[in-house]
Design a protein around this nucleic acid. Structure first.
Lengths: 153, 153
DNA sequence: ATGCAATAGTTGCAGTTGCAAGCAATTATA
DNA sequence: TATAATTGCTTGCAACTGCAACTATTGCAT
């Protein structure tokens, strides 16, 4: 049997999520390009503030990418004057990452653009459908997170 | 206002899909690593057969990646003896990509492993929920595809 | 028919990412 | 308290990807 194998229902859903993610990601890239950010850079900026700061490792954990990725991504953001590293007062190994005023302005502009695009695209579903979808996705995410934890060991 | 901005409902859904994709992708990588394939390589193999073959560009279009990516991905697969390029009888510019017997065996093994993992993870939802989710996702995908088309112009 | 635009595929190049190794500081253990 | 294991972050390296430029072929327009 050389031709493709009949896909199961679960498989079909998996593929749907994949396709939708790719479409959403593509749209995100287009929008964020207007403020010269990659989706990952945007995700980092979204998680920052100007006062308290966050540790690089924590951000990396949330974004499910390795520490070195964050290191270099932050290098770029810092070179563009969007963020600033400061020593962590509680742990001399750690750095706290802060938004600069310029970073704050850019982040808010990016959020504005991104939100508008997201609203438009998710608005393809009726409010009731969105509600339903959200419930299902939340359940799925919770389950998958657990699944990941157990796989880690 | 430096702290994160209140996220909209649409935004929340967007994020859910993102998170779920990342979790699923992570799981996929783990499973496919057992047969030494990346998710993208797996996607290519899934789309091939041993008889008719497919053109590189068509595969790239389906996978939403540029031609050069496919070129080099196929280079790797061919180096591992999993696929084979043959001239397209209808177009001397084109190549048709075929599964080798070894590629077929590996693909089927990969599908077996992958399907089992997918079933397990999507099985986190009840059958009725899966049905619902699938409907919503299909509607969303259709809308997003249209949205992409219009953005292309 | 002829020339021009589009298409199939490849290659050079630069950018991003993960992995493994390393350093400094902290926490746990004995 | 001395030592070992862990943690936070960085760096070298290799792999993968997109973009732009290029060749060869095809299709379309005069």
């Amino acid at each position: 049997m050389s031709p493709p194998i009949a896909p199961s229902i679960a498989h079909e859903q998996h593929r749907l999520i994949h396709d939708i993610y790719v479409l959403l990601d593509d749209g995100d890239r287009r929008v964020l390009q207007k403020v010269n950010l990659s989706p990952l850079e945007f995700s980092v900026l979204q998680r920052l503030d100007t006062a308290q700061g966050r540790r690089l490792t924590d951000i990396g954990a949330e974004l499910l990418c390795v520490k070195s990725t964050i290191t270099r991504l932050v290098d770029r953001l810092e070179a563009h004057g969007l963020v600033r590293r400061t020593p962590d007062p509680d742990d001399r190994r750690a750095q706290r990452l802060l938004l600069t005023p310029r970073g704050l302005a850019l982040r808010d502009e990016a959020i504005r653009l991104h939100d508008a695009a997201v609203e438009r695209r998710m608005g393809l579903l009726e409010p009731a459908e969105q509600q339903q979808l959200r419930m299902l996705l939340e359940k799925l995410r919770a389950g998958l997170s657990e699944d990941l934890e157990s796989a880690d060991q």
